[in-house]
Amino acid sequence: MPIFRFAPSPNGELHLGHAFSALLNQALASVAGGTLLVRLEDIDLARCSPVLEARLLDDLAWLGIVSAHPPRRQSEHFADYAAALEALQSEGLVYPAFMTRGDVREHAQNCEHASGIAYPRDPDGAYLYPGEEKRLSRSEQQAMVDDGQPFAWRLDMQAALSRTGPVQFCELSGDEGTVEVQAEPHLWGDVILARRDVPTSYHLSVVVDDALQSISHVVRGADLMPSTSVHRVLQSLLGLPEPLYHHHRLILDADGGKLSKSRGSTSLAALRAAGLTPLDIARMVGLQDIQLSASAEIEHPER
């Protein structure tokens, strides 16, 4: 049976972009004769809270989103992510990285000043991690860890790709069914998989959860398409199944920018308080005839 998932973070109010993704996932699950699961990606314990979680679930219930099972809270499953990280550690594919963001920025700017060439950045615009620690022996790395220096566990992308070789993912694309997309994980460099204070990251937890929940279809915003390259590498390294993907259009604000919690985009709660109905919300995101519109989204995702 096809299994879809909607996986928001309870670190702020849901907005129209979340509503579109949730409604689209539910409609596509229905069309496919499958089910929808709600997952709470709450690994950021400093920003996520029970109050925000309760508001999020209330918004989804009001919208008509029905999860086939109680939501999975990532904060309750750190042991699952730790086991995956240990598997990668045992293969020598991760290393402790001690440079802070400020250190990386200083290193990159010094390189740019010396060479006159722009230092490489990842798809999110952040400077790639230099990976100086990979030159150290394991005993030297461990000595720094034992000394109490703050660090994060990073994936050695070059070593990882030497194991996996080229990776691809299958993107649902309307009349063509699926299109094979060549992944470009090298563009991300050595991504963080866990921190000393948080034993996982978005990249690691999402692939572990998708596998444990038998997710067959990952339907999410087009802004997350570059991340799929990292996820496919991790799935390959950990022997996890590969879902089908569909990266849907984004709901934009009046200025053409992506809706986001950090930018204070109008929340579903505010729209509810203003008297709007779930049908109004569906109309606002172009899913007023939810079944037909969902199919059209797959056929014409560029809208």
Rank of each mutant, 00 (worst) to 15 (best):
T228W: 08
E140I: 07
Y202C: 05
Q74E: 09
V181E: 11
V191P: 06
V230W: 13
V230E: 12
P226R: 13
L60F: 07
Q291F: 04
M225T: 05
I215Q: 00
I298Q: 06
Q182L: 14
L57P: 02
K261L: 04
A211H: 01
Q288E: 11
Q149I: 12
Q291L: 08
A19T: 03
G64I: 11
R105W: 14
T228C: 13
E112W: 12
V285L: 11
Y119R: 12
A87G: 14
T228R: 07
D80R: 14
A126T: 07
L60D: 00
L234A: 05
P8K: 00
Q158C: 10
I3Y: 05
E112S: 11
S9V: 01
Y245W: 04
V218A: 05
L28A: 06
Q89D: 05
F151N: 09
A7V: 02
Q149T: 11
Q291R: 08
P243Y: 08
M284N: 03
A82T: 04
E91K: 09
V233S: 03
A82S: 06
N11H: 09
V38Q: 02
A32N: 08
A152C: 10
S162M: 06
G34L: 10
Q142F: 07
L60Q: 05
L234K: 06
M144E: 10
P278D: 02
H15Y: 01
V208K: 04
Y129A: 02
A61V: 12
D255Y: 13
A27Y: 06
P150Y: 06
S293N: 06
L16F: 02
E302S: 11
T100Q: 09
P301H: 14
E242P: 00
V219M: 03
A282V: 01
H217R: 00
G264Q: 02
V198L: 05
P185W: 01
V179M: 12
H247E: 07
A46V: 03
T35W: 04
G189L: 05
P243M: 07
D197S: 10
A97H: 05
P241S: 04
P199Q: 11
M99S: 05
L28R: 13
V285C: 07
Q142H: 10
A19G: 03
M144P: 03
P50N: 05
P70R: 14
R73C: 11
R135D: 00
L252C: 13
S295D: 10
A32F: 15
E112H: 11
S236K: 15
E53M: 09
S262I: 02
I215V: 01
Q149D: 09
L93C: 01
L259R: 10
A118T: 11
E112A: 10
E133S: 07
L155Y: 07
P10W: 13
A84S: 15
V145P: 07
Y202S: 03
L88T: 00
S260D: 04
L40M: 09
A273Q: 15
E299N: 15
I215F: 00
L292K: 12
F4A: 02
D210T: 01
G116V: 13
M157P: 13
L23K: 03
A7R: 01
G131I: 07
G286K: 01
S115N: 09
S216G: 02
E302L: 14
V207A: 07
Y81R: 09
E242C: 02
S293G: 15
E86H: 14
V51T: 13
A83K: 13
L187V: 12
L244D: 00
P301I: 15
D122N: 10
A7C: 03
